[in-house]
């Protein structure tokens, strides 16, 4: 798609509608990746409460995964996880090579 020129966009960088954050994947900033283990998870939802970016995906009261399009890799979910061993562990992004989480 050809990007609009300066005559075709709203002045001053105004985004003239709401909810557009969904369209902007900010997960590629991340250098530390949380991996969720369904076996170890007790579904206490502390990670969901503490995640500053609403990146813990929950369905029917259960953690079902992580939204890697928006997770910045802060590690708070793993820090707050109360199980031993932890149900969410952090890994260095370089451990995964160039692959996007959706591909592995």
């Amino acid at each position: 798609m050809k990007a609009p020129n300066w005559k075709e966009i709203p002045p001053g960088g105004v985004i003239a509608k709401g909810g557009t954050a969904f369209q902007y994947a900010t997960g590629d900033w991340r250098n530390s990746r949380p991996i969720h283990d369904l076996e170890l998870c007790i579904n206490c939802l502390r990670c969901w409460v503490y995640c500053p970016d609403a990146s813990i995906k929950v369905k029917d009261g259960k953690v079902v995964g992580i939204d890697y399009d928006h997770c910045k890799g802060c590690g708070i979910c793993s820090k707050e996880c109360p199980t031993n061993p932890k149900a969410i562990k952090m890994f260095n992004e370089t451990d995964f090579g160039e692959s996007h989480p959706s591909e592995f």
């Binding site: 990007a3 300066w6 966009i9 960088g13 985004i15 003239a16 509608k17 709401g18 909810g19 557009t20």
Partner: peptide, 17 residues
């Protein structure tokens, strides 16, 4: 009519603005 003012404007749009 919710709007965003002062959004991040990177290499793709800053020059146009």
């Amino acid at each position: 009519y919710p709007i965003t003012v002062g959004a991040l404007d990177f290499t793709d749009f800053y020059f146009e603005h």
